[in-house]
Design a protein around this nucleic acid. Structure first.
Lengths: 212, 212
DNA sequence: CCTACCGATCGGTAGG
DNA sequence: CCTACCGATCGGTAGG
């Protein structure tokens, strides 16, 4: 891994451009013009557009980790961590950490029907994030903070849906009320009520079995 | 509106290509080659790429209406219609009506940070669909089939999230279990239980007020 | 509907 | 890091 300043500047600019225009819309000529350098000078750092895209995806993952995952490390594993992760996730979209909204929601939509290393990288990173969430759902169930019988994959599926709806509400709908809706929906899924007993006593969304 | 067969064939092919490669990835040369005609012959039908994109978006909307909205018209307005619309929505993704998943989820993600007529068309059509859903949520509340105090916009927000999670689960995750998860999540939001009384008696997700 | 063409830009290479 | 260049493709036009 090189640590050159120029290289880092290229990748940083690439992340910003890709979050708005897409990873395919990130062209070498445009990026070179943005940074005041020649196309070949820029390409020399990476070798190919695909290699650049992969570095941009990795850099976006590092930003996501710093701006979302790392903000929750102070909380206890299980339900507190899960809530903190989701709160940080909403905040990350509210703060517009990437100028084009969630980098990975955009990249997932762009590459979900393609094949190749970029798709694999996006799928792998999102899978890691979902795994992290799932772990804390499991811990929450084990601790009795989520109802016994809760399906962790179902919770992660629904949490992802809420965040995609938030990204959509902010970017396409430009609805400033979207974060409040997302928080309200998250509250339904992983609660914010203070007592475990209160949650256990009511019909538990995540635990309810499929309708046959 | 022309009704030419060639023109219709171009648009139909354009819808399929755009659902996979994106509306920007739909190029005139590629489309012309697919259909065995010249670029200028193809472009003559529309005048510009943007005009073609707009026709493709409209054609996709017609397909969505036929494959989703129209399949629910036999049900009573209100909760039955809402449930039928959502069931048809899930089915439409399961059946892969578009080869690249939901045309409008993909188009929304692609154009949410751009300006211009294509973005406006996508935003307008999705707003119409959400309005349709909201109407039936309101009717359901008025009929007592959803709890009094239910926020229709909140329900529509969450329904959209479930469908985006389904599209993501099918396309990026390639998870055949995703439709079952979506149905289970929808069941939480708009129920499938047979009796209104049973729903009214339990904690109602859609009606719960924000956590201050 | 076609051929022929336009300038611009694409990703990438040669050679320094 | 650069200039200079490659063939391919982009959206679009002229003229028929």
């Amino acid at each position: 891994m090189e640590t050159g300043r120029t290289r880092a500047a290229i990748v940083a600019r690439g992340v910003a451009v890709a979050s708005v225009e897409g990873l395919e819309g990130l062209t070498i000529g445009r990026l070179a013009a943005d940074l005041g350098m020649s196309k070949s000078g820029l390409l020399g750092h990476f070798g190919s557009k695909e290699a650049l895209q992969l570095e941009v995806v990795d850099a976006a993952a590092a930003i996501f980790t710093r701006e979302v995952a790392d903000r929750a490390t102070g909380t206890a594993p299980g339900l507190p961590r899960l809530r903190a992760l989701c709160a940080a996730w909403v905040s990350y979209l509210e703060r517009e950490v990437f100028p084009g909204g969630c980098f990975f929601i955009a990249a997932a939509a762009e590459f979900d029907d393609r094949a190749g290393p970029v798709r694999d990288a996006v799928a792998g990173l999102t899978a890691l994030w979902e795994r992290d969430l799932r772990i804390h759902v499991r811990l929450a169930v084990a601790a009795g903070d989520l109802p016994a019988g809760t399906d962790p994959d179902q919770v992660v599926f629904e949490l992802g849906g809420v965040l995609m709806a938030l990204n959509y509400g902010l970017r396409l709908r430009r609805d400033p009320g979207a974060p409040a809706r997302a928080r309200r929906a998250l509250d339904q899924l992983i609660g914010t009520g203070p007592t475990v007993a209160a949650r256990a006593g009511r019909a538990a969304p995540a635990a309810r079995p499929p309708a046959a």
